[in-house]
Nucleic acid binder design. Structure first.
Lengths: 189, 189
DNA sequence: GTCTATATGTGGATAGAC
DNA sequence: GTCTATCCACATATAGAC
C-alpha cells in the first residue's frame, strides 16, 4: 500500500537522521534499511531533501507531543517542568531535532530548517509560560526572568546530550539535569 | 617548509571540521581550501582520519588554553566561572569540540574520540573545583553539588549553541548563559 | 616533498521496462 | 508502484614520475 511504504520511508529516514545526520545519510542507506527499492523511493519522494523534510517534520511533531504530555501532567507548574526535564531519554542518542542544528546542509535549506526552528521556539515558549506560572504560584524566586530561565533549561537538555556523548555515559545527562533542577530550587529535597 | 605545510593542513582541517563535521569534510575540500596538493597531503598525513586526529587534538588544546585563561582571571571563584561563561564566543558557529560529539564516525574511532572525551572531562573537573572554591568562599549556596552544577554549566554552554543555531540568533546563546548565571546567583545584580 | 594519473566505491538521481 | 539499467560527480585513496 502506498501509505505504508511512504510511512516506512519516513520512519527509516527519521532513524538515520537521528543516528548519522543529514550529511551522513544517503538515499541508498535509506533503501537498504527500509527494504524499499530505488524506484519506489523516488516514486514517493522527490529525493533526499524531500524525504528528509517529511522526516524532520515528523520528528519535530513527536518532540512537541512528548513535551506536551509532560507539561500536562498533574501537579504544580514547577513540578511539571521538572517532570519534563527528568523524563526518560535516550541520552547517548541525543535529540533527534537538536542534532540537526549541527548539520550545515539542513540549516542552509529553509524547508529543512523551519521545522527545527519552530520546534525550539515552541518548546522555549511553553517552558517560559510554565515558569511564569511557577513564579506566580510562589514556587520560583521572583527575580528570575522566565524567558531566560526557559532558554537555559532547553540548553541544559541539549547540552546534556553533548556531555553524555562526550563522556560515553548516559549518567552525565542525568547529572546535568539534576544540577539544573537544584539551581532552580526544584531538586530532590 | 614541512612544518608550515603540516600546520596549514591541520588548521584548515580544524576549520572544516568545525563548519561541516567529520562526515561532511572530504580530503579534496581540505586540499582546495588549504591550497595544498593531493600528493603533498598524503605525504604528510596517512589520510583523512590521521589528519582529523591532529586537528581534533589541536582544537581540544585550544579549548583548554582559552578556558584556562578565563579561569586564571582575577576575582573570586564564582566571578571567574561567570567570566568563562560570558566570554565572547561565536555562538552561531558552535563549539569546535562539542560539535564532534554528534559525529558517529568520530565517536566510533577511539583515536578521534579520546581528545574530545578528555577535553570535556578536564573542563568539567576544573569547573567543579572552582565551584567548590566558590562555595567555600560563601559565594554559592552550600546545598549545591559542585560536580552536578559544573556538568549543568558545561551543558548550558553546549546547549546554548544549539538553541542559538536553532533560532538563527546569537542572542539566544547569551540568554541561556544569563539565565544560568541568574540561577547560580551570579547574575547582573 | 609535490605533481599527475589512475582506481574503486558511493552519492544522488533519471529513464524506461514491467 | 516497483524494478533494473545507466549516468556523472565526488570520496578516498595508491602509484610512480619529477
Amino acid at each position: 500500500m502506498t501509505a505504508d511504504t511512504q510511512d516506512l520511508l519516513i520512519e527509516t529516514t527519521c532513524e538515520l537522521l537521528w543516528e548519522r545526520g543529514y550529511v551522513g545519510t544517503s538515499p541508498k542507506a535509506i533503501q537498504r534499511r527500509s527494504g524499499v527499492g530505488q524506484g519506489s523511493m523516488y516514486h514517493h519522494f522527490g529525493g533526499k531533501a524531500d524525504l528528509a523534510r517529511a522526516a524532520i517534520e515528523r520528528s519535530a511533531a513527536q518532540l512537541r507531543a512528548r513535551a506536551d504530555a509532560a507539561f500536562g501532567a498533574p501537579g504544580g507548574a514547577l513540578e511539571r517542568v521538572a517532570g519534563y526535564l527528568r523524563r526518560e531519554r535516550d541520552a547517548l542518542k541525543g535529540c533527534p531535532v537538536g542534532r540537526l542544528t549541527q548539520d550545515p546542509d539542513v540549516m542552509a535549506d529553509p524547508l529543512l530548517r523551519a521545522p527545527v526552528e519552530e520546534a525550539f521556539a515552541w518548546l522555549t515558549g511553553r517552558l517560559t509560560g510554565l515558569l511564569a506560572q511557577a513564579r506566580d504560584e510562589g514556587a520560583l524566586r521572583p527575580g528570575l526572568d522566565p524567558a531566560a530561565t526557559a532558554t537555559a533549561l532547553v540548553a541544559v537538555v541539549q547540552g546534556g546530550y553533548v556531555v553524555a556523548r562526550a563522556a560515553g555515559s548516559a549518567e552525565d545527562y542525568g547529572r546535568a539535569i539534576e544540577g539544573a533542577l537544584a539551581l532552580l530550587g526544584a531538586g530532590t529535597d
